[in-house]
Write a protein that binds this DNA or RNA. Sequence first.
DNA 1: CCAAAAGTGTTTGCTCTACACCCATGG
DNA 2: CCATGGGTGTAGAGCAAACACTTTTGG
Lengths: 242, 242
Amino acid sequence: MLGTVNDPALSTPAPSSNLADYPRPSVTVDLVLFTFAEGELRVLLIKRKHEPYAGAWALPGGFIGIDEKLEEAAARELYEETGIRDVYLEQLYTFGDPDRDPRGRVITVAYFAIVSADLMPEAHAGDDAEDTGWFNVYALPQLAFDHGRIINYAVQRLRYKLEYTALGFLLLPEEFTLSELQSVYEVVLQEKLDKRNFRRKILAQGILEKTGRLRYGDHRPAKLYRFTAAAIELEKARRRFP
Amino acid sequence: MLGTVNDPALSTPAPSSNLADYPRPSVTVDLVLFTFAEGELRVLLIKRKHEPYAGAWALPGGFIGIDEKLEEAAARELYEETGIRDVYLEQLYTFGDPDRDPRGRVITVAYFAIVSADLMPEAHAGDDAEDTGWFNVYALPQLAFDHGRIINYAVQRLRYKLEYTALGFLLLPEEFTLSELQSVYEVVLQEKLDKRNFRRKILAQGILEKTGRLRYGDHRPAKLYRFTAAAIELEKARRRFP
DNA sequence: CCAAAAGTGTTTGCTCTACACCCATGG
DNA sequence: CCATGGGTGTAGAGCAAACACTTTTGG
């Protein structure tokens, strides 16, 4: 039999169906962190410093601590590898095919995360990363492990969330124009939307308010909006797949 | 350092960021298997033979094999513990709080499953179970571990699936009356539906066909329907959260 | 013939879609 | 003054909800 019961924090002596009777896989968390900047839907990747796949781009993530909740591990790994904190986080899916990692059996619990472009502190590479970068979701480099598949899955989830909830605001800065918001929807859903219908629908939900400020650009200035505090609380509480 | 790399099927020698450097949790799969019988939404439970929680009711499940896909492990455990095979199966959520199992760190990947009442062979207790039984979801006994929470989560997912897909048929026998189908929706969604609107909507989808047979009961006989083969394939392929 | 479940249409309001022109500013 | 994106309303179609009575059988 391989391994031993390795949790010092728990006391019950192991009885008949002993954990030690079963080989144990390694378990990691990986994060798909989205943001929206310069008209692109972007995902955060790190360049791996170590084998396997040293030098390849991969999702931030790592091994769970033996006394750590899964979501805590996800938040910790993100912070350690990139310096980013306080993002919207929810569990995505668990990927566990036996051959997904050349080192052995590694099961990964993938998390889905969103950060606004303006709250996004400059990502900086942590210990396990040579570099970090934001990549356009529709133009990704070759990825380590099955991370391409994980990102595809996360993009589907994001589309779904945008169609059925108002979580789009998490991707944008605090203030934004309606055209910017529409652009988020168009880029994520990959379809063109009618301007008048989009505005009517989004305003009818009563979750936006004018900030009173204007964005000055090359031409006619646009009114700036923000999501109301009430709407933000409501959406965060809702989480249809917590 | 605890443990060793324990996957004999894979060959790459472990390089720098070694799996052996991290303590490994145990990983199990648990299944929430639903069916619908006698007007009740029911879930399959087994009575545990071993500690911890010996004698308590729990979800069928067990440790994953080290070379086994997660979904395969779920199907295998279900078969071993109950003799049931060939069910609709999809991943539900991964529960991994550090204190959810008194034996130590055990992460469980929960699966969501549905079987028709008629295909359901008599469940028989396997090696790890003293007994098995179908329980009304709305009248459950005390459950082992965090299995109550897992079932709640699965019921939410089932409601969701019924509202947005036509997966209700998986819960019923091959032939059923429209009133029986409506009753599935009412019991799962916990709301009363209008008979005429329900029938119109479900028939408009074009996924049902008359079998030509009738169900004779106490009173006026009801026409029997089945789902068309095309509709079944379509729904299985769709899986919005695969 | 009575009890009980099966079966059947219409009206109304709401939501979604398609669609085109004027406005305000910077250069 | 012109180029550019910002901003606005309406008509028609399709969908969802409310609502009550007749039919068929078993006992």
